[in-house]
Structure formats: structure tokens, C-alpha cells
Design a protein around this nucleic acid. Structure first.
Length: 274
DNA sequence: CCCCTATCCTGAGGGC
DNA sequence: TGCCCTCAGGATAGGG
């Protein structure tokens, strides 16, 4: 499941390879991955367009095209965006192939199809309501002053549900929500309202910390995540709680508890986290 | 307004 | 060996 560190790994890897390149050919294999008006316009606008920027907002990848439109890609659960030499075999569930002017292909693949592709200027996409409202960026230097900690203290939802809400904080998913709660020593089941100022501040510090750590290890690869060249990350080997229900807490040794919060599997240490 | 649940989708893994 | 069942979860629609 690509979250912020995984998406940022892809963006940083692809950027120097894509900037300045032109999309020579567009192959839209499964047009239902497009969530914008019509496939014909899509192909017309993307074909021949030059990439002038590669960025990220939350879990959305933005390929900025000359003239203003953004090709926006969300990877959902199982999406990958990889650069390949044309003759390399194409995996099943490859929904979109963009041929570059240097003989390589940018391939968008997503077996579970929770991802999507958008195209439009930022203004157009906003008017269409195609992009959700996104909260502050955990890696931004201003994150500490973004009001994130305060917004946690205003909700009656469980912490876990608030952390997964992209309007509260951009880019957090199931892995790093659990990891941040562990580092901040707060139970993900706690209602936001019940947090002390100190606990909310600890979460505000923990989230950028766990994400920077994961980014340094090029993301967590369980089943699906691959970087822009098909390689796995190593961050999953350094996780404290995610995927470790029933195993001993790395801090105190007690058995980690696994439960469901906000419809998601949630793992925490009932001794370290209060 | 806010919160919660069901839904989309495929592949992996367990049980028999 | 193969079949069936369950489970994984990001975002969103719709109900309470």
C-alpha cells in the first residue's frame, strides 16, 4: 500500500528520468482507470506533451505537462508506476502505457484497481471535485505549525480514523498511522478529544519521524510496493508494530494486540501505548 | 455537521 | 492437488 514515503520514493526516482521527456505515444489499455471526462481528449492532450515537473501532494503523483495540465496518478492499494525498456514483458493489469521519446515506457499497473488517473489543470481538477481536500504535508518544514495536533484534539473519532483522513493530514495510511501512534506512545483507539496537549504534540512529531525513516529506506514493500524501476524498499523490515500483531513489542516485550479501528487492522502495544 | 459502514477489486494464504 | 473461503485496505457514497 503506497503511502507518503512510498509515493515520494517513486517521485524522486522518476523525476530526473521524466523531466524534459515527451510522451510519444499513449496506450490507454483500460479506460476505466481514468476519472476524467473522456478518453479521447485524454490521449489527445497527453500525446506529444512534454513533462516539465514531477511532484507529489499527499499520495497523489503529479506529472506536470508543458502548457499547464497535470497528469495525476493515485496508486490506490496495489498500483505501480514504473519506467521500463519497451521490450520488457508487460505484466497483467497494466492499464496505461506512456511511450517516452527515448524508447522507454512509463507503465501504470494496478491489479486491484483502487487507483486512478486524472488529467487537468489544477483549477479544472478542483472545479470537478476530482481531488479531495488534503491536509498538511508531514514532510513540510511548517508541519509543526500546521494545526495538525490541534485538529486531532477536536475530533471525537478514534485517533486511527483521524490519521487516515487525508483532510487531517496528507499521505498517511494504515502502516504509518500505527507506527506514529507507537512512537508517540498513544493508543490508536483513543478518541482525539481525550488527548492531552503533550500527547497530540508527540503525534505531531512522531508522524514526520516515522515517514522520514521509511523514506530513507525507500518505502515499505509487503506484497505490492515497488519503486519507479520495479525495486522493493526495505522499510517494512524496520517497522515497530504494523504487521506484527501477536509478536513481542520491540520496546517492552509484551505481546502486541491486533484489533480493528475505523474498519482497518490496527496493531499496538497495550503497555507502551496509553 | 460529524461519524460509521459498506463497497469497489484481485491475489495470497489457510483449511480440508 | 485443487477448491473455497477469508482477508488485505484507500477513498467515497450513503445512512444514521
Amino acid at each position: 500500500m503506497p503511502e507518503l514515503p512510498e509515493v515520494e520514493t517513486i517521485v524522486r526516482g522518476l523525476r530526473p528520468h521524466l523531466i524534459g521527456r515527451t510522451f510519444a505515444e499513449v496506450e490507454l489499455v483500460r479506460s476505466s482507470v481514468l476519472r476524467v471526462p473522456d478518453p479521447v481528449t485524454f490521449e489527445g492532450l497527453v500525446q506529444g506533451a512534454q513533462v516539465v515537473g514531477v511532484g507529489r501532494r499527499g499520495k497523489f503523483i503529479h506529472l506536470v505537462l508543458r502548457g499547464g495540465p497535470h497528469l495525476v496518478i493515485h496508486l490506490g492499494m496495489t498500483g505501480t508506476l514504473t519506467l521500463r525498456k519497451a521490450p520488457e514483458p508487460r505484466l497483467a493489469h497494466t492499464h496505461l502505457v506512456l511511450w517516452l521519446d527515448d524508447g522507454r515506457e512509463l507503465r501504470y499497473r494496478d491489479p486491484r484497481r483502487f487507483g486512478r488517473v486524472l488529467l487537468g489543470t489544477p483549477g479544472q481538477l478542483e472545479r470537478l471535485g476530482a481531488l479531495p481536500r488534503l491536509g498538511p504535508e508531514p514532510l513540510a518544514p511548517t508541519f509543526g505549525r500546521s494545526g495538525f495536533a490541534e485538529s486531532l484534539r477536536r475530533t471525537t473519532r478514534p485517533l486511527k480514523a483521524a490519521l487516515l483522513d487525508q483532510a487531517v493530514v496528507a499521505g498517511c495510511g494504515n502502516i504509518y498511522a500505527d507506527e506514529a501512534c507507537f512512537v508517540a506512545r498513544v493508543r490508536p483507539t483513543r478518541r482525539g478529544r481525550t488527548l492531552s496537549r503533550a500527547e497530540a504534540m508527540r503525534l505531531g512529531a512522531a508522524l514526520p519521524l516515522v515517514m522520514r525513516q521509511a523514506l530513507g529506506l525507500r518505502g515499505s514493500s509487503f506484497a505490492d510496493f515497488r519503486d519507479g524501476f520495479g525495486a522493493k524498499g526495505e522499510a517494512h523490515e524496520a517497522l515497530f508494530v504494523y504487521g506484527r500483531g501477536g509478536l513481542p513489542c520491540v520496546r517492552c516485550g509484551v505481546t502486541l494486540r491486533q484489533t480493528r479501528v475505523g474498519g482497518r487492522t490496527t496493531v499496538y502495544c497495550h503497555r507502551c501505548q496509553r
